[in-house]
Amino acid sequence: MKLGIVIYSNDPETVWNAFRFGDHSIKHHGDEVRVFLLGRGVEAESLDSAAFTVTEQMAQFVAAGGTILACGTCLKLRQAGGSEMCPVSTMNDLHRLVAECDKTLTF
């Protein structure tokens, strides 16, 4: 299955669980999973805490074959840029994710 995940939260537990689910879907079900970070979700790489190692979970997701895209406009509003793990993307990329995926989830 092609699974799209849109993350627009900056709550560490929510983001950590979204990436855990994506990683699980790839490793245990063979799904193709793409994540789009939108709004507050583009802050994902800065959400690590003692309880939730968000960037570690993101790296595991990418290592398993997942893809992460980050909204360029949302990054710009936060005076931030993309990264190797989360390249700058556009609304066209989000539309493509939603149109091509069998299921799309939001967190």
Rank of each mutant, 00 (worst) to 15 (best):
T104W: 04
F52E: 08
R40V: 05
V6A: 01
I7K: 03
K2Y: 02
H24I: 07
C101L: 09
V6I: 02
L69Q: 14
L94W: 02
A99G: 12
R96Q: 13
E32V: 06
V15H: 05
L69E: 08
Y8T: 14
L97V: 06
K27C: 11
A99T: 08
A63G: 03
K103P: 03
Q60A: 11
T106Q: 13
E56K: 11
W16S: 09
V42S: 05
A63Y: 06
K103H: 13
P12T: 01
V98C: 14
G30A: 01
T90G: 03
D11M: 14
V54Q: 02
G65T: 05
T104G: 12
D23H: 11
V88E: 15
T14W: 00
V35F: 07
F61Y: 06
N17M: 08
A59Y: 04
A51Y: 02
G4A: 01
G39C: 12
L77Q: 15
A51K: 07
S46C: 11
V62M: 04
G66K: 04
S25M: 11
I26W: 03
T67G: 00
F61K: 01
F19Q: 12
K2G: 04
S83H: 07
S25I: 03
Q57P: 15
G82S: 15
G4K: 02
G39S: 13
F19N: 09
H29S: 10
E45Y: 04
S49D: 12
R20V: 03
P87E: 05
E100K: 12
D93R: 01
L77H: 15
T90M: 05
L105T: 06
L37Y: 00
K76Y: 09
A44H: 03
P12V: 04
C101A: 15
E45W: 00
S83R: 08
M1E: 15
A80S: 06
L97M: 10
C71P: 01
V98N: 13
L69V: 09
N92F: 00
D102F: 07
A63N: 08
L75C: 11
V6L: 03
Y8L: 14
A18I: 04
A51S: 07
A64H: 05
G4T: 01
G30D: 08
Q79M: 08
V15P: 02
K103A: 15
K27R: 14
A70G: 07
V15K: 02
F107A: 05
A70H: 06
N10E: 07
M58W: 03
A50V: 14
D48N: 09
H28S: 13
C71V: 03
